[in-house]
């Protein structure tokens, strides 16, 4: 079974990548299993300055997922480079994807540029779709012109391939995908979380401190598949598919829809070994479906 896939010339041993925000900086999971089974990983969303994030509660449960409003809590890019990535490097030998959030074009540009010299990072994922940051995040990902301009500016200063993480909270995700590719994006990843709410049955107030948050989990999987399918038709850059993936079967379907690699998110939070199990399950599922080379199935759903 050949599970290898290529992203921007970088070879991944398999397409399984824990999604940003569900895996910290990776090394804490190394106490549970050997991380080297994973194709890559996307690091916790990083900003120029350290951020505490939103007040608690930040989490609300749903029947088939959860709502989170973390608010990009992270130690800031300098600490990520000097402390977090070296810790990860000791337990994971492959290269990873940095994930960058921001409030302004200059903050994105500056933060992304800081990863230029970091060998551990083979690509930077630009989070323009975080629903939990006021005045930033998603505001960059819902207007095609603003998104295109941001990517253009970031590309001027980045030596790494740029993956733009897209928001599903738009009327036409393909339009945004085209816009960021127009700005020079090397790839896109989707979907980020869907904006959702829950209310406390006793008080009638929102459970999440800031009202709404991002909904993810198995419940969003069909929505994610449809959007990956749409975006594959619209652009020619590699797509990283995510949203509710919880098994190797989901990975295969996501690749049929058009994904070159697949991120596993919320499932890591309820089943700490989820990404490992999916990576282990993948060759068995390929055998069952008579798939010899995983790269052959990318976009199969679009075949006439």
């Amino acid at each position: 079974m050949n599970t290898k896939v290529k992203l921007f010339g970088h070879e991944l041993k398999n397409p399984i990548i824990p999604a940003s925000g569900t895996f910290g900086f990776g090394y804490e999971f190394a106490k549970l299993y050997d991380l080297n089974i994973l194709g890559s990983m996307s690091l916790k969303g990083t900003t120029l300055e350290p951020r505490y994030g939103n007040p608690l509660p930040r989490i609300a449960e749903c029947p088939a997922g959860l709502i989170n409003a973390i608010g990009l809590q992270n130690p800031g890019v300098d600490k990520v480079l000097s402390e977090e990535i070296p810790k990860l490097d000791k337990v994971y030998s492959d290269k990873v994807i940095a994930n960058v959030g921001g409030h302004s074009v200059s903050e994105y540009v500056e933060t992304v540029a800081k990863f230029n010299e970091c060998e551990k990072v083979f690509a930077v994922e630009l989070n323009i779709s975080c629903p939990n940051v006021k005045g930033g995040g998603m505001a960059f990902g819902t207007d095609p012109k603003i998104a295109e301009n941001l990517v253009k500016e970031v590309k001027k200063h980045s030596l790494k391939p740029i993956i733009v993480k897209l928001s599903p909270n738009v009327t036409d995700i393909a339009e945004i995908a085209k816009a960021v590719c127009g700005g020079g994006a090397d790839g896109v990843s989707l979907i980020n979380t869907l904006v959702g709410m829950r209310f406390d049955l006793r008080t009638g107030r929102p459970i999440i401190s800031v009202g709404s948050g991002g909904y993810s989990g198995v419940g969003v999987y069909p929505v994610a598949l449809r959007m990956v399918y749409q975006v594959y038709k619209a652009v020619s850059v590699p797509i990283i598919g995510m949203g509710g993936v919880s098994s190797a079967y989901d990975v295969i379907e996501m690749m049929y829809a058009g994904a070159t690699a697949v991120m596993v998110g919320s499932q890591n939070l309820i089943e700490p070994l989820a990404s490992k199990h999916i990576a282990e399950q993948l060759p068995r599922v390929m055998e069952e479906l008579k798939i010899n080379r995983l790269e052959d199935i990318i976009g199969r759903a679009h075949n006439e």
């Binding site: 569900t22 910290g24 930040r58 989490i59 609300a60 973390i70 890591n268 309820i270 700490p272």
Partner: peptide, 16 residues
Amino acid sequence: ARMACGFGACMGCSIM
């Protein structure tokens, strides 16, 4: 605290 993961991955329960 309300938690999602319970083992340090999600930052859902961070206090100051």
